[in-house]
């Protein structure tokens, strides 16, 4: 089922933040939302699962209008991993189990436990399940947060800066996990990112935001140095190293 965003518009008080946002995301696709700080990447994600209420426009999953759904119903379809994840004196298993919230009635069932167990196995983090999250590293904590969104059994996963504050190995680990889940389960991922190179490597399609609007929504081969200069306001060259496109800013070199 496609996720289609139609004419989405968001205002904060009287200020226009996003306007005329329309795009379609297909199952099994990773879409990276890119753009400078403060352009509204996080706002866009939050509008998709109604943490923020858009001023106008619609978000459809298949032919179902997501903005009209009850919040728990919505949470059974869209998983969300925010930038900031709080810790506490909980085991990883308990922390992930909270992700079953949209499915839990009065108490958890055996199925809830089985789903959490399956996700721990799927993400190869079985050894962590009884570790306390307040003793975990940033990378482990981010995996817990992603696992928590996965046990919602969503069809769409929204990730806000999933790799910020992680070292190189953990960045790649997290993005590989996401790519693997997307392939295996045919869910769609929309994620905001700052690191253009990681985005180019793991994304299938890219949304560049500029001046409250979508500047470009396209595949990797449509991203030119001109696009990046227009969006980020800095000249770059795009080269290929080891088969991967790499974006290098040139201002520092040419003075």
């Amino acid at each position: 089922m496609n996720l289609s965003v139609e004419e989405l518009r968001f205002m904060y008080r009287n200020q226009e933040v996003l306007q005329d946002i329309s795009c379609t995301v297909e199952p099994g696709e990773v879409v990276a939302v890119l753009g400078p700080n403060g352009v509204g990447k996080t706002t866009l994600l939050k509008c998709l699962n109604r943490i923020l209420r858009p001023k106008s426009g619609a978000v459809y999953l298949g032919d179902e209008n997501l903005l009209g759904l009850d919040t728990l119903e919505l949470a059974r379809r869209i998983g969300y991993v925010p930038q900031r994840v709080e810790t506490g004196r909980l085991t990883a298993f308990d922390a992930v189990l909270i992700g079953r919230r949209p499915h839990i009635g009065w108490d958890i069932t055996e199925r809830d436990l089985k789903v959490v167990d399956a996700v721990f196995r799927r993400l190869s983090m079985n050894h962590l399940r009884l570790s306390y999250i307040d003793e975990m590293s940033g990378g482990e904590l981010q995996k817990v947060a992603i696992a928590r969104a996965l046990v919602q059994e969503p069809r769409i996963l929204l990730l806000d800066e999933p790799t910020s504050n992680l070292d190189l190995k953990n960045q790649v680990d997290i993005l590989e996990i996401i790519a693997h889940i997307v392939r295996e389960h045919g869910i769609a991922v929309v994620m905001t990112m700052h690191d253009l190179n990681q985005a180019l490597r793991f994304g299938n399609r890219f949304i560049f935001l500029k001046d409250r609007r979508i500047f470009l929504y396209g595949r990797g081969d449509e991203i030119t140095p001109g696009v990046i200069q227009s969006v980020y306001g800095i000249p770059v060259i795009i080269d290929t190293i080891g088969g991967q496109p790499v974006v290098v800013p040139v201002r520092g070199r040419t003075g």
Binding site: T71, Y80, V85, G88, I98, R101, A145
Partner: peptide, 19 residues
């Protein structure tokens, strides 16, 4: 379960459908 979700952060809780 709502309090557990809020303990994980307001935005996480909202993403889990908690008002």
């Amino acid at each position: 379960w709502n309090y557990n979700a809020i303990d994980a952060g307001d935005e996480t809780a909202k993403g889990l459908g908690v008002k």
